[in-house]
Simulated assay, not measured.
Amino acid sequence: MRRHRCHQAIRSESDTGSETEAETMKCISCKEEYGSRDAGTCKECYEEASETEEELKREIEDLKAKLAFLRFGSPLDHAHRGSSTSAPFFPDVVLVPSDDGSPGFPPVPVPANKAVLVNRSPVFKAMLENEMEESRSGTIKVSDVSYDALRAFVNYLYTAEACLDEQMACDLLVLAEKYQVKHLKGYCEKFLVSKLNWDNSIMSYAFGHQYNAKLVLDAALSLIIDNMYRLTKREEYIELLEKDPKLVVEIYEAFLSKQVNTAAPKDCSMKS
């Protein structure tokens, strides 16, 4: 069983000089010395740590059981695109994408439950609790989204799970921002930050600015500022300069601000 770092021990030689006196170990937890040369901590602390570890394991298992109990069955658990329902599912609303990737065919709706949408999104709540068209018709049209992204979005509202790549993370972040699903937005932002590099930094900066993704925006801006000498050589820089010159100005302002802060005295309270 893995031992906690705080239960490491420090060996100390007896200062009596006796060759027959055994080495002692001092437990960092309780500070008591003990004679074992093999154990990493005293017996009492080791047993206490083991009990704590077992208790934490039981708590984790209990939380997993509660989550499984509270988890709504997702539409993806019951049906796949183009197939019949494989388990009981009682949708009372459908979300229709504007683009489902099937030219010549009508968009494929994604079934859902109003109760789930209302509890996950204040935007859906406003739509469905008031006498709006979506509430009367039971149909919510979602513009500028593919079927796959919309299906993944609805699935996340039920399960808090999503299989991400960079494109899907961007698509879901856009939906999360539009429908104010903060948990999903944060999840996608962290994923995109983990994939951030110099090649996609300018696009990520513009994307973060457009959809109020502060984590992405700040991480991308920091990377750009650290590589300012390479900035003007990028095609994306020229495109950004033509499309949204205000963002380029903000980049240079942030760069100059960092230069000023770096050059400032460390102790501003010192008088010359």
Rank of each mutant, 00 (worst) to 15 (best):
L173R: 07
S135P: 01
C163N: 15
H80Q: 14
F72V: 03
L164M: 14
L157D: 06
I140A: 14
E134M: 06
R151I: 00
M168F: 04
S137R: 13
G101Q: 09
S143T: 12
V93D: 01
S86P: 00
A162L: 10
P106Y: 01
M127V: 01
R81K: 10
A79I: 04
E166W: 01
D100R: 08
P97K: 00
G138H: 14
G73E: 08
E161F: 05
E177P: 08
D77G: 09
A152V: 04
D77N: 13
K178D: 06
S146F: 05
Y156P: 01
D148F: 04
D144G: 01
Q167L: 14
C163E: 15
D148Q: 12
P109K: 04
A152S: 15
K141I: 06
P88R: 12
V181K: 03
A79G: 00
Y147I: 09
E134C: 02
N155W: 01
S98I: 00
T139N: 14
N119L: 10
S83M: 10
F72P: 00
R81G: 00
I140M: 12
E177T: 13
P107F: 03
A162C: 13
N119I: 04
G101P: 05
A162W: 05
E161I: 10
P91E: 09
L175N: 08
P91G: 09
G73K: 06
S102D: 14
E161C: 06
T139C: 14
S83A: 07
N113C: 15
R151H: 10
A160N: 15
P122E: 13
V181L: 14
A169G: 10
S83D: 07
L157G: 08
S121V: 09
A79K: 03
P107C: 04
K114W: 00
A162Q: 11
E177L: 05
S146E: 05
T85G: 00
R151E: 07
T85V: 04
S74H: 08
A162S: 14
K178L: 15
S143Y: 04
L95F: 09
A169E: 10
R81H: 02
P75Y: 02
V181R: 03
T139D: 09
V118N: 11
E166D: 15
D165T: 13
E177M: 05
V145Y: 01
D171I: 03
F105A: 09
Y158I: 11
E131V: 07
I140F: 13
E129C: 15
V93P: 02
L117F: 08
R81V: 01
A112P: 06
